[in-house]
């Protein structure tokens, strides 16, 4: 489903070049639950961004569902982000001025889904994450765990096959963190592919296998727990 062939990413900051990823080969099967670990600056986020089509590799090719997405335009990548990938961020990244309902609705607005369909889907998702009574509340009125659940619901709005989570429990207390992880486990069992960046081995324990990164290279791939 996800295949990296010799992916490198180099950032240029003026004269200085920073190699974030060098010659990465990975392959993730459909339905996998992978955690990505490694120290700060090892290239975890860059890897996630490229998988999520937010960033493009400097070298190499990236196949998503058998399609080479390395050379696509911004708008084509937008469509992929919209339909195939759901993002969950460490700091939730909800729109502060919008209610939970509106935040969840957002990806469907960019896709032009019909009003009735959106309404049905948003309510379904709110119920799934247990926040139906909070539909009209803004993120600032919710706890971190609740916000992250809204963010997960938003990631699922377009029913994407892949969920990318960048330290989803990093800003949460352990109880909320476990609630979140329960949801991820459920999603995985429903057949979604989940990739998750984490520092916490306890969180990584939920996954099937782990990719360890160090200085932009894959150090270990697929070790079971």
């Amino acid at each position: 489903m996800i295949e990296f062939r010799n992916i490198s990413k180099v950032y240029k900051m003026g004269e200085v070049e920073f190699v974030a990823l060098k010659g990465v080969f990975i392959a993730v099967q459909k339905g996998g639950f992978i955690s990505i670990m490694g120290p700060s600056g090892s290239g975890k986020s860059t890897l996630m961004n490229i998988i999520g089509c937010l960033d493009t590799p400097t070298e190499g090719s990236y196949y998503l569902d058998g399609e080479n997405v390395s050379g696509l335009t911004f708008d084509q990548l937008s469509t992929i982000r919209n339909r195939k990938v759901g993002f969950v961020f460490q700091n939730f990244n909800l729109l502060p001025y919008a209610s939970a309902y509106e935040n969840i609705e957002l990806p469907m607005l960019f896709n032009g889904k019909k009003n009735t369909e959106r309404k049905r889907r948003v309510n379904e998702l709110l119920e799934m994450v247990g926040l139906l009574p909070w539909a009209r509340h803004r993120p600032t009125e919710m706890s971190g765990g609740q916000q992250q659940r809204v963010a997960i619901a938003r990631a699922l709005a377009m029913d994407p096959p892949i969920i990318l989570a960048d330290e989803p429990t990093g800003n949460l207390d352990s109880k909320s963190g476990h609630e979140i992880m329960d949801i991820f486990s459920r999603l995985w069992k429903e057949g979604r592919t989940i990739l998750m960046v984490t520092h916490d081995p306890a969180i990584a324990a939920f996954s099937q296998s782990t990719i360890r990164l160090l200085d932009g290279a894959v150090q270990e791939n697929g070790a079971a727990h």
Partner: peptide, 8 residues
Amino acid sequence: IKMALGAR
């Protein structure tokens, strides 16, 4: 955020 969610 909007771009990540698929805004063109």
